[in-house]
Design a protein around this nucleic acid. Structure first.
Lengths: 238, 238
DNA sequence: GCGATGGTTCGATGCGCACCGAAGCATTTC
DNA sequence: GAAATGCTTCGGTGCGCATCGAACCATCGC
């Protein structure tokens, strides 16, 4: 008796090294061209093309054509969740790279997980949002309290607009490096955007790792207790 | 730049059909002999032996030798989590079996997910435990409230003993069929055992699907509001 | 319009690995 | 002790699929 959905196909698609590298690179949440994907996978353009076709056909990736450029990105949060779960498992059983890259500590500190923040800073924020009563348990996992609602709106996050979309507002995403949840969902994504917009942190090219400005992590955490100024340390209103 | 743990190896192990079938069968939380694993995978004993060795070496499975029998089981909750995440993704993108088995509705209703309950009944319980204040949000995801503590203890669940172990007490596990969380962790496992012990539900051979006795689901849900009698519908105190 | 660039398709190649039956080892049963 | 049973190891086989360069198509820039 073979119970449940057939995981073999999905896992075998993810389990090929070139495709795994493409997916990992796309976990930064940005779209990459076919050429960039080929570089991430260290294969010829023709090989990447075949791999990308498979991933698109399997609905793990979506492609957007702009002239002669094709931009690929992860199809949705559920794909990211599965990849993150596999990363957690791989990290725990020791399937790490033979030679840890220089950015591993940076990845653990803070990184993009698809479209929201992950790592030490993000899990600390998640914990604080709960401890300070902005997020509460709900049937779907987590919900924003009235206190939280006021706080997020005051920071310029349009909750009503987020809620109007089919995507869940709050979702716990088990962090592979911290082994506890960070905040995903549309709210998690909005907070990540806010942090970048405020200049608390910035993204770097070619990696998921995120760099926090001096005082940036503190400012992000201050979201929870309401001491976060609407203007960031650099008054980056643009 | 190749960021994060290397998921290719894990995924490729899971992505081979025979191994995927073995893992799926073991998600019922029971140990299977090598012979039984071979039957689940529909391969020769020698082929299964090679596959099982790979899974054990990769620490996805553990094996216990009893005389001439070798019992294999899933190595831990993190493996189950990754498999469940892949199942969720596979279910959503349509990689279901060509011919849905007769037990698919039963699987959706209630099934074992490793060592705790999943499906409609389990997610309803999770929601009710939260709505009734027995579970609350915490930094690690979920925690038992004082009210919940008293309730579970009254039902014979030794929380102190569970907490003395390294395994998390409460963990949200995103249910592949319901798309919202059911309760995992050592508490989730204890509740599953309680339900079986009380005769509210029973496990069936050869499948993860769980069958609830008449009134059994209601009794399980009544855990949350304290109307669940210490004796089940069949006074199954054994 | 031409050359450069991005990307796809095609065809040939070769490697990896799942497969099986046979043989062998270990344990159990009578 | 012999036969049955569970399981592993071995060796040969063949299929699947990732790979690349060449050819081709589409778009962009001058």
């Amino acid at each position: 008796m073979k119970d449940g959905p057939d995981i073999a196909r999905i896992a075998s698609l993810i389990g090929e090294p070139a495709r795994a590298n493409i997916l990992a690179a796309l976990m930064a949440g940005r779209a990459l061209t076919a050429r960039e994907c080929a570089a991430e996978a260290c294969v010829a353009a023709s090989t990447a093309s075949a791999h990308l076709n498979q991933l698109v056909e399997a609905r793990l990736l979506v492609v957007e054509v702009q002239g002669r450029h094709r931009y690929y990105r992860i199809a949705g949060a559920d794909v990211a969740e599965a990849v993150e779960a596999l990363m957690g498992l791989a990290a725990r059983i020791g399937s790490t790279r033979s030679r840890p890259g220089p950015r591993d500590p940076a990845m653990r500190k803070a990184r993009y997980c698809y479209d929201h923040l992950a790592g030490e800073v993000a899990t600390a924020l998640h914990a604080k949002l709960i401890a300070d009563g902005l997020l509460v348990a709900a049937a779907d996992g987590l919900a924003v309290s009235a206190t939280g609602r006021a706080r997020f709106v005051a920071q310029g996050i349009d909750l009503a607009e987020l809620e109007a979309r089919p995507r869940p507002l709050c979702r716990s995403c088990l962090d592979w490096s911290e082994r506890r949840p960070h905040l995903a969902g549309s709210l998690g994504a909005a907070i990540a955007q806010l942090a970048v917009k405020r200049g608390w942190c910035r993204r770097e090219a070619g990696t998921r790792a995120v760099t926090f400005a001096p005082g940036g992590a503190k400012a992000l955490l201050a979201l929870a207790d309401g001491t976060s100024a609407a203007a960031g340390p650099k008054s980056a209103r643009g």
